[in-house]
Design a protein around this nucleic acid. Structure first.
Lengths: 238, 238
DNA sequence: ACAAAAGTGTTACCGTTACACCCATGC
DNA sequence: GCATGGGTGTAACGGTAACACTTTTGT
């Protein structure tokens, strides 16, 4: 940081906007949480749930606060996405408003759908299917698209699925989860199975569970310790 | 962004800090550009080159401005890295200073070493070998480490090397470049060669160049059009 | 018995790895 | 001629992809 006279420096408010995904495993739908804006600008538009950062609050804490004001959920994955900070991305930046800039640090979250209880309030948070996202406030459609890309690549390289699946799950549950996010053609079931089991961090509990007709499935559990050695190796889960 | 009373909102200055890498291909050294701080806090400490964002200036433009004030360079790759924004990461955030927060959006850059001409000024920018980084101001050691990780993974998945190598280069030049960043053991030369040539975006110019004794090497060129179809495919360059 | 769901096996193919080897030049 | 740097070839191995097939359940 160098010698510019401080009268040239921009003053910022910093917002945190969250791209919150969940997978409805019953209906195999990928969902995004949107909320209705209660203030200008873009009053009543749909938008990514966000908030302005308060004094003494970290960025991540602001992201968690937004989340906790909309849904009650214990199992989730959250990471920083990207920072959008160009001038004129927010209409409040008009010259009359003393040149305050609005910067958005976006976060990406994946939460357990079954558990996520929406807190009904005036911002009426609701889940939208990824294919049916309406026009959003600000540059939020762009941020959402960026988050969607990140979700897809994260899923391939990292075990984020297990942060969000129930403790015990069948391999088919897992497969459906992957399919819902990555699409039908990413791998066939038998190969998916073999690959994941060979990696060795899924342990068979022996417990069987039946889904109507057909052979009962084994319940598996993600075994954290067996996974750690694989951390930051360039493995694909496909 | 929701209903908090605006007196609780933090006010920010936004800084841009750059992790600027280059590869000294003569001596196979990976270098990072550091500059000396001319102001408190951390007066005279080494730090990542950075600046505070000015009115009307985009984040990326601020990153380019910092760069251009320190070095003259035409060939480079630049992308956003991460945003560090916790409270108390900057000593200027003491209560007496009206609670202004300092947030840092970090950028990651790779520049052509041979071409990069350092602009000697009081901040005395200089290249440091990655193994010999001193104690830096703020949380800059952490940011640098983060940038180093990004450099290594980027190199494996993206053609950023060609943004920085000369127009024409030998396969051995390319190999040395990779080795300098990724270490000796990432691949043997013959396999590296075969893999890259099979990908089909390196075209042999036929021009030969000699390096002392030994058989002369062919000069190759990166062929952008042949690369485009491979974009965003999950290929490893290793 | 038969359909549905889960799980196993098989085979062809392709990329990776670790080498050994050949080629062209300077001294 | 021989060291040096550049370039080619190959054989073992392991993962992937596309299937067919078997097993266990409900009705």
């Amino acid at each position: 940081m160098n010698s510019v006279t401080s009268k040239d420096l921009a003053n910022f408010k910093v917002g945190v906007d969250n791209v919150i995904f969940s997978v409805d495993t019953q209906q195999n739908r990928l969902l995004v949480l949107l909320s209705k804006r209660l203030k200008t600008p873009f009053l009543n538009s749909w938008s990514l749930p966000g908030t302005l950062v308060q004094e003494g609050e970290s960025l991540e804490k602001a992201a968690y606060r937004t989340l906790s004001e909309l849904i009650r959920v214990n199992n989730l994955y959250l990471e920083q996405l990207y920072t959008f900070g160009g001038p004129n991305r927010d209409p409040r930046e008009s010259p009359e408003s003393f040149g305050v800039r609005y910067l958005s640090v976006s976060y990406f979250a994946l939460v357990r759908y079954e558990e996520a209880e929406l807190i009904q309030k005036s911002s009426s948070p609701s889940w939208y299917m990824i294919e049916k996202i309406p026009q959003l406030a600000f540059d939020h459609n762009q941020i959402l698209e960026y988050g969607h890309q990140r979700l897809k690549s994260k899923l391939k390289y990292s075990p984020i699925a297990f942060d969000v699946l129930p403790e015990l799950f069948t391999l088919n549950d897992l497969y459906q989860f992957y399919i819902t996010i990555l699409g039908e053609n990413f791998s066939d079931y038998s190969n998916f199975r073999n690959k994941l089991l060979k990696l060795g961090f899924l342990s068979d509990t022996g417990i069987k569970v039946s889904k109507g007709a057909g052979r009962p499935a084994s319940l598996y559990r993600f075994d954290e310790p067996s996974f750690t050695p694989l951390k930051d190796k360039p493995l694909l889960f496909i």
